[in-house]
Design a binder for these strands. Structure first.
Lengths: 208, 208
DNA sequence: AAGAAAACCCCTGTTTTCCGGGATTTTTTT
DNA sequence: AAAAAAATCCCGGAAAACAGGGGTTTTCTT
């Protein structure tokens, strides 16, 4: 019996998943949680699952961070990412941080079951569209999502709001030079050469 | 018997919705479609539903445009929007274009049933979080999503890629002045004063 | 306690965008 | 066929962002 827990904040989606998983008698959904905090708590207190089906976009933490954290503490739990995003950096970051599978939400139900069985066999599972997305970008150039600091994020948000460097400096009580440094660092981390692209990418990766 | 069709590109979600709607015996799901084109075709050929449950983000057309089109041809079909977005302009645009209800995807199953019954009674239904989102923005200032032209969209995408005005002009074989005009118009339509904000908003409203 | 990373600060010159006016020609839509 | 909307082009001055160097002080992490 494979014990599975579902981490997903859309009840309707949870309903659908459970329904699909019910058709496979070797799978047993032992719990579902709508945010990162409650899963972490459940893992401490309750029975461990074999597999976690995890939505990448949760209300409290990003699936990427949650995966890292869970894998650090419980390395034998397999994690399958469930996502609407087929951007390479998102996929790549999830896999790098310990996910064993990546399934897009537009996948058919049986893909999920296949994914669970595959990762239980110790292999990696990527759904068809994910594989497509990954192969189009050549191996070595695969970029992960840049890790940005608190401050950078803060500044990114203000830029997104349309504030200028001067306004940001005033609001945060720091010098305009500092703001420009952060701008520079952001551009470098994202590998682009103007803030507009940074904002676009950040929005894409849901960092805003 | 209320005839319902579901327009949603995530099979798992469809599964969940059907499952929930099955619990109400007065509701009958007569079909489901994964994109805009197939619904429009089905409406021409098949039996009309009373209510359409429609995802706002479809692979081919935006839910906003699809709603407009369906309402133009079949004004008595009630449309309930299903969405992950709680941005005011998105909600506002849907309602303005004829949707009778707006339910966020993190809603509980019974909210959907309530929504269907409410719109069948001729009233408008908004889920709790939607109402929250709307009331925080003051009535008169409610902005709809700007309607941008083909060319503007094209330019917006190039800006998002990080190209400068000169590069865009070269690529599209038009003068830099033209590009600047488009830039200006975009900023005006979105009500902001730099292109970065335009890109951010466009990303938010899924116009990119 | 060291070392690394983050956050902070500073400068100058160049490029690009923004703002404020215009105007003409194609397309669509009615 | 007329009217409206979109797309095109033009200018000059002001404001902001970018590029590319430099450096110090906190704050994590090991």
């Amino acid at each position: 019996m494979i014990k599975v827990i579902v981490v997903e904040d859309h009840p309707i989606m949870v309903e659908g998943l459970k329904n699909i998983l019910r058709t496979d008698l070797t799978i047993n959904v032992i719990g579902d949680y709508g945010n990162g905090k409650s899963v972490l708590q459940a893992l401490e207190e309750k029975d461990h699952p074999d597999v976690i089906l995890m939505d990448v976009n949760l209300p409290d933490v990003s699936g990427i961070n949650l995966t890292t954290e869970i894998k650090k503490k419980y390395e034998d739990i397999k994690i399958i990412a469930l996502s609407v995003h087929d951007e390479q950096p998102v996929i790549h970051s999830m896999l790098q941080n310990g996910a064993s599978g990546y399934v897009l939400k537009n996948a058919l139900g049986n893909e999920i079951i296949k994914a669970i069985n595959t990762v239980m066999d110790g292999e990696e599972y990527l759904c068809t569209s994910t594989r497509e997305a990954l192969k189009s970008a050549d191996q070595d150039l695969l970029k992960a999502i840049p890790r940005i600091t608190r401050r950078e994020k803060e500044i990114l948000q203000l830029i997104g709001k349309g504030l200028t460097t001067i306004q940001i400096a005033e609001q945060l009580f720091i010098s305009t030079h500092t703001v420009e440094s952060h701008r520079k660092n952001l551009m470098e981390k994202f590998g682009v050469n103007n803030t507009t692209s940074v904002v676009k990418l950040a929005a894409e990766y849901k960092l805003l």
